[in-house]
């Protein structure tokens, strides 16, 4: 973890209520796709955890959806403004588990952290299949960006307005070596039930600190209580316990 002051270089809409925030500053604390950052916002007491969409030296890309006061405040910020950010939080995805042909499943804004994962896996020569699910056509983002990485991309919409009709689990390919998924919890549960073989899933949680101090985001797992922020947000498929 590293505390960094970033400067906003871009904060632009990508889809309905979805923005891309680009931040210039020290990204050396960010070490793995699937990690997140925790952003201090003026007038709000707690920081806001946002997944890392992409990271390269000196430039951090976040894609976020406006869902409450914090993300509303983020959407109102402009170029040149500065943000106090805790970087490199959480464990991230383990790319060593991918096999030759990993499957990436993104639900809504959960597609964002899969982008850097896809880029990393493509750079390692993997055949990457990405299935991105959205509620409706207006919510879609990054379809072209995933394609530009050389991924085999399928987009599904719940209302059938674009691509395959249904959820990501209605558009699973026949053959894949490992599954990486990020999205709302009902989607992750369906992925666990329907995707074949092993996988890693990235969870959201209402966090206090974001770095393991407050025990605010704990969930029960087969290996005992785990903090989503520190022991996750990425958990192995066999580790997860679902609320009944």
């Amino acid at each position: 973890m590293k505390k960094v002051i970033f400067e906003i270089t871009e904060n632009s809409p990508l889809a309905a209520g979805v923005y891309r925030l680009r931040l210039a500053g020290d990204t050396s604390g960010v070490t793995a796709p699937g990690q997140f950052v925790n952003i201090a916002l003026p007038g709000l007491y707690l920081r806001r955890p946002i997944s890392v969409c992409d990271a390269e030296p000196g430039l951090l890309t976040l894609v976020y959806k406006v869902v409450g006061h914090g993300t509303e405040a983020m959407a109102a910020m402009g170029r040149g403004e500065r943000l106090d950010v805790l970087t490199g939080l959480g464990n991230g995805f383990d790319t060593a588990l991918a096999g030759d042909s990993p499957l990436l499943l993104g639900g809504g804004i959960g597609a964002a952290p899969l982008y850097w994962l896809a880029r990393t896996l493509r750079a390692a020569g993997k055949r990457v299949c990405a299935v991105l699910g959205f509620n409706t056509e207006g919510d879609i983002f990054y379809e072209d960006e995933f394609r530009a990485l050389g991924c085999d991309v399928t987009v599904a919409t719940a209302d059938g307005s674009y691509g395959a009709h249904g959820f990501v689990t209605n558009a699973l390919p026949d053959d894949y070596s490992f599954t990486y998924a990020c999205g709302p919890e009902p989607m992750l549960r369906a992925v666990c039930d329907r995707a074949a073989g092993d996988g890693q899933l990235s969870f959201e949680a209402r966090m206090g600190c974001g770095f393991g101090a407050c025990m605010g985001c704990t969930r029960e797992t087969v290996n005992g209580p785990k903090r989503v922020c520190r022991d996750g947000p990425v958990f192995r498929k066999g580790e997860i316990l679902w609320a009944s």
Partner: peptide, 23 residues
């Protein structure tokens, strides 16, 4: 102790509420 069910954290104007429950 596992503590209380989720969610356990809420924010307010100048602080936060926690209901971690002694995990």
């Amino acid at each position: 102790r596992f503590g209380n069910p989720q969610p356990r954290i809420a924010e307010c104007g100048a602080g936060l509420l926690n209901a971690v429950g002694l995990q």
